[in-house]
């Protein structure tokens, strides 16, 4: 496990350079539709796309299909590459993260487990991580940072957790008195941004566990996912309204785009927002069975 989690400096530097250059190239302008995953004429079908993972180095998209029990990869142009079901071990997968060595962490909702998948060795290990008090963690999302550190969103307590190589909790990130539970989080360098959906609040933490602040957002119906751009703006996905709402760093409403529906540029019970390596905005749209990719 230590080896898997080993720090890959070159990958981190490459990722940082990609992110930095993207912030210069894609500074402003209206958001425009680029493509969808899978392409309408590709013959590839997603049952219930529930999450998206990005490989910024290889410039690939990995879609988690909860209904199909598979992970589906696409290249930077949206061309279908492969579908992988881990030998039938994936049962309602909800989230995945790829380590720098190519191994995968996946949340298996049907068994409420965390899977560690080594695609090269065709080996799947199942884990049920626990809190220090023995309570089982109920994973909903998984992420890996540039140092291959593992982060989970736990539904039992609504907290984001950092786990060590032995899958022990080394850090917990949660809100204060009004905290209802995080529904999404994003890792950005040494910062963690987490969205409390029911309280419509974004919390910021350092990876070390310090609370850096929180902003409350107004005018949202049912926020489920967030992203943070290189200018520090928050992009919040409103699942019921079918919109992406953009807020300034202090929570001031800037603008919103997209809308509820089934055509391009419309969302139907969308689940997640993810920026790719060029800060193109990817919207995981469960109801429409696709990932919409937008740029500006």
């Amino acid at each position: 496990m230590k080896k898997i989690m080993s720090f890959k400096m070159s990958a981190a530097v490459a990722m940082a350079m990609v992110l930095f250059s993207s912030s210069l190239l894609f500074a402003a302008g209206p958001w425009n539709y680029v493509r969808q995953l899978p392409a309408a004429d590709s013959g590839v079908k997603l049952g219930l796309p529930s999450a998206l993972s990005i490989d910024a180095v290889k410039q690939r998209y990995y879609v988690v299909d909860a209904e199909g029990g598979q992970l589906v990869s696409f290249d930077k142009d949206g061309k279908f590459l492969a579908a992988f079901n881990a030998g039938g071990e994936l049962k309602t997968p909800l989230s995945m993260a790829r380590t720098s060595s190519g191994a995968l962490w996946a949340v298996n909702r049907a068994s409420s487990e965390l899977l560690y998948i080594n695609p090269r060795q065709q080996k799947v290990q199942r884990f049920s991580p626990k809190y220090p008090d023995g309570a089982q963690i109920l994973p909903a999302k998984v992420a890996v940072d540039g140092k291959n550190r593992l982060f989970l969103l736990d539904q039992r307590r609504g907290a984001v957790l950092q786990l060590d190589d032995n899958l022990s909790v080394v850090q917990q990130y949660s809100g204060g008195k009004e905290f209802k539970g995080f529904v999404d989080f994003k890792l950005k360098g040494q910062q963690i941004w987490a969205l409390d959906g029911l309280s419509a609040a974004i919390h910021q933490f350092s990876v070390a566990g310090e609370v850096a602040g929180a902003v409350t957002l107004e005018g949202l119906e049912f926020p489920v996912s967030l992203e943070v751009d290189s200018a520090g703006q928050f992009y919040v996905l409103d699942r019921h309204a079918g919109t992406v709402v953009v807020f300034g760093p202090s929570g001031d409403l800037r603008f919103s785009f997209l809308g509820k529906g089934k055509r391009h540029g419309q969302l139907w019970y969308a689940k997640e927002l993810v920026f790719d390596w060029e800060e193109k905005l990817c919207v995981v749209d469960e109801g429409n069975g696709r990932i919409d990719i937008l740029t500006r």
Binding site: R109, L138, Q155, R156, G158, S174, G181, F182
Partner: peptide
């Protein structure tokens, strides 16, 4: 009852550290 939440969408994680 815990197994009845093992679906793509569920009603856990709605009460923070409290009891959902």
């Amino acid at each position: 009852v815990l197994g009845s939440f093992n679906f793509a969408h569920n009603h856990l994680g709605i009460a923070g550290q409290g009891n959902p």
